[in-house]
Write a protein that binds this DNA or RNA. Structure first.
Lengths: 201, 201
DNA sequence: ATCGTTAGGATACGGCTGTATCCATTCGGG
DNA sequence: CCCGAATGGATACAGCCGTATCCTAACGAT
């Protein structure tokens, strides 16, 4: 075998190139040739490592989910001991675009989200992370409720759904520059105060 | 002049065809020829009444805003006397996709929103309605606060921003079938209860 | 050394895109 | 009556798209 090459590494580079384009110029600017140019390779290489454009697109969506997952874990680890409220602050704060990279990823995520509304194949891949987040937070909030951290009259799943919808909506408004990241963070903190009571600091 | 034709009416039909495509198959499926087919006319007619594809796209976005505006007013009128809470229920309830037509429009709106993130011309057109809504509701909420309908410790603009972000996020989750319209409505009502106190009915 | 597989360069194909052009028909004002 | 403007049908164009094909170079195992 000649010039043995790490296929996974090649695919990773191509996927990253794809997400760079999607994050800056939108999914509609993503073409095989553009990806090749962005990654600094020939069109043939893109074709060689991905059977389809569809496969490439799905790879991009999967990578976006993985990045979000990593960011949540990194942020949670940086916070040290995790109160129930801390878990929510970590997850919701990670959904918002808080630096350049996460802004690009949020843009790409939004593009994918929209594409998934009219593309069932993407929808299947794209809903796994949001659903996992909702389930994870619901489990945590239910436990927090049993521990007495929030009042018993709240419905955990409803609260979680509302908070995630709020974070997503705020992400939209930050991306379209209607609001700053700081303003969005304040709104989330405000809602967490209402749920958990004021932060102990 | 031969066969004098109502240009505005022609343009309206073409714009409606465009929005039908955008709402069902996404903005990426919108092409001059597809619009022509959907409207039952020839390609030339589409070219004749719109100088550009860009002009056509902007016309679609403007029409989407006008439809939302009409819906809000219709709903507000149907509610009769408008308490401050009623105004919010009308506006936020209208943002959610509540029937087939508004679902199609929400889909199209989402597609436009995403496109606007990487297309400044669309962004300029698309931000007017959201900003108008935010300002309108903020004025109303400020007045309600001065009338004693909500407690003085709330910041009207922050509350409005949060509620609009919530409604937008819920719209996303309804469109992607993560949640039903009824579930989304409950979440909004719940937050309105927190703001205005429980509904008097 | 050579054979066979792997990696990719070069190029081509049919289809769709937005836009432009050419031309025929229609009809109201003189 | 008929001329000229309004309307729109038919067609063409260059460019990009995803995909397929052909061919060559590199190199490990035999």
């Amino acid at each position: 075998m000649p010039r043995q090459v790490d296929h996974d590494e090649r695919r990773r580079r191509l996927t990253e190139a794809l997400l760079r384009i999607a994050g800056t110029r939108g999914l509609r600017a993503v073409s095989m040739r553009e990806i090749a140019a962005e990654a600094g390779v020939s069109l043939r290489v893109v074709q060689y490592y991905f059977t389809n454009k569809q496969a490439l697109l799905e790879s991009g969506l999967t990578e976006l989910g993985a990045r979000m997952d990593r960011r949540v874990k990194r942020r949670a680890a940086a916070m040290g001991e995790l109160t129930p409220r801390g878990v929510f602050a970590a997850v919701l704060g990670t959904i918002l675009p808080f630096d350049e990279q996460s802004t690009l990823d949020s843009m790409a995520w939004t593009a994918y989200y929209t594409a998934a509304l009219t593309d069932p194949a993407l929808a299947a891949v794209g809903l796994t992370l949001p659903n996992a987040l909702e389930n994870f937070l619901t489990v945590r909030l239910t436990a927090a409720q049993q521990a007495g951290d929030i009042t018993p009259d709240r419905d955990p799943r409803t609260e979680v759904a509302g908070l995630l919808a709020l974070a997503n909506g705020l992400t939209s408004s930050v991306l379209s520059q209607q609001r700053s990241y700081e303003a969005a963070t304040k709104i989330i903190d405000y809602h967490l105060d209402r749920l958990f009571g004021p932060e102990i600091s």
